[in-house]
Design a protein around this nucleic acid. Structure first.
Lengths: 247, 247
DNA sequence: CAGTGGTCTAGACCACTTC
DNA sequence: AAGTGGTCTAGACCACTGG
């Protein structure tokens, strides 16, 4: 059994979380089996019950454990933790999970005024400009999605300067390295058909059905930091989400 | 300032949550303004700091507050709390929010063996049966979605017996009243076109584009309790999700 | 009944932000 | 330096589950 290090700068509850996560992922704790009780964890790891409970409560929120009053704490089935995030916010990670090589082509990177819809989403005045990135996302080299991203200028000036890096990487990773941290993402989408330009870039026929996605992301304070318009052909890509319902 | 009742069977941290929620929703606490500090709340409500922190931590998880180390705790902007849930799991509530009258027509309610896909999702053997509900969902009387729900039999026998109630109400509400509580929902969807049967029921033309949705819901223990196949015409319905990204 | 998680207290020290 | 949230302790009593 691993021990927690008090000399470690990481908090004890966090270290305990990592130990439990590791045991779950390694298969030492099978789904629906009980983990040690709270008093047992207190004794095993020499921490207070409050510290144990902080670790367990967060793991419950993250969907790795569930509690039953009077019975114990149990391991959840491994259904794709935080799939929502990896799916819609880090397209590249999701593809890697599926064994596909993520990539992309940066078609246009420019500074524009933006349409009214874009300015509204990013809460910009008519004078302010936006960074506009137009991309085709690929998996194993094959085009799978058409995507246009808008970011507020000059806040995202460094993303504009390093736009080429988004072609084969994730825009969200680039944004994070520039201090732009998505916290909430609002998606709206509907069934739609490909425009002629999209069909040409995705090598499909115009009018083919797919998903039209609009997404605005906000930082922790609710300030909009990015807006995306995208088209996913139905024949190429299954979106897959896991939504955790709060009781 | 409201006070917390120690004679109230509801926990103190829960009462405090409700008080703060009410103040936020009533507009007494504007977005991005700081709420009282933790020591202040301790003094105001005569509870320990741990109790205050439990209330605040849950409100942060629910997206009503955000914390900044060394600065304070602030009110989030009111972006559709738990929109994921209301949108995809309680269709009727979502429509009401939009000022539309939700309704539906129960076309078929039957006990069948189910296709292989259905039995796999619900983890049933070849012998076990499923409850199959075929519905058209409506808003202000106009058809907006075609939906087929499958539930394990005999666990969901009471849903089968009361199937008519799902026509104008929510299946999830009926399930809840029968002890079936969705905890996780897995959705997959893609752009697709309407079949002839769907087109007829939805009064659109066959081949019109829309979203094909597959959804499996699980209870707290990870046991599958419901499986849905649905089609939303693109011309009738914008799905709208709010995803909260965990840091 | 014993064991589990659920709630709560009254402290303590620390890291971070602001002035 | 003062105030904020972040972490942690060592207790306590309660409600629920199971044998």
């Amino acid at each position: 059994m691993p021990t927690l290090e008090r000399s470690n700068p990481l908090p004890l509850y966090y270290q305990l979380k990592e130990v439990l996560k590791q045991q779950i992922n390694a298969g030492h704790l099978a789904p629906h089996t009980a983990i040690p009780s709270e008093p047992e964890l207190v004794a095993q790891y020499h921490v207070s019950r409050a510290t144990v409970r902080q670790a367990l409560t967060e793991l419950v929120h993250e969907g790795l454990l569930y509690r039953q009053h009077g019975r114990g704490t149990f391991v959840c089935e491994p259904r794709v933790q935080q799939h929502i995030v990896s799916e819609l916010n880090s397209f590249t990670e999701e593809l890697r999970k599926r064994g596909l090589q993520p990539g992309g082509v940066l078609i246009v990177s420019e500074l524009v005024r933006g349409t009214q819809a874009v300015r509204e989403q990013l809460r910009l005045t008519d004078e302010e400009q936006v960074v506009r990135l137009e991309r085709v996302r690929t998996a194993d080299g094959a085009p799978i999605a058409y995507e246009v991203n808008y970011l507020p200028y000059p806040r995202a000036v460094s993303v504009y300067q390093r736009a080429r890096e988004t072609a084969d990487g994730s825009l969200y990773h680039l944004m994070a390295s520039e201090g732009l941290h998505p916290y909430i993402a609002e998606h709206s989408f509907k069934g739609d058909v490909a425009s002629e330009r999209e069909a040409e870039l995705l090598r499909i026929t115009a009018g083919e059905s797919g998903i039209r996605l609009l997404c605005t992301t906000f930082d922790e304070t609710g300030a909009p930091i990015e807006y995306t318009e995208a088209f996913y052909p139905g024949s190429r890509y299954d979106l897959r989400l896991t939504l955790r319902v709060t009781k």
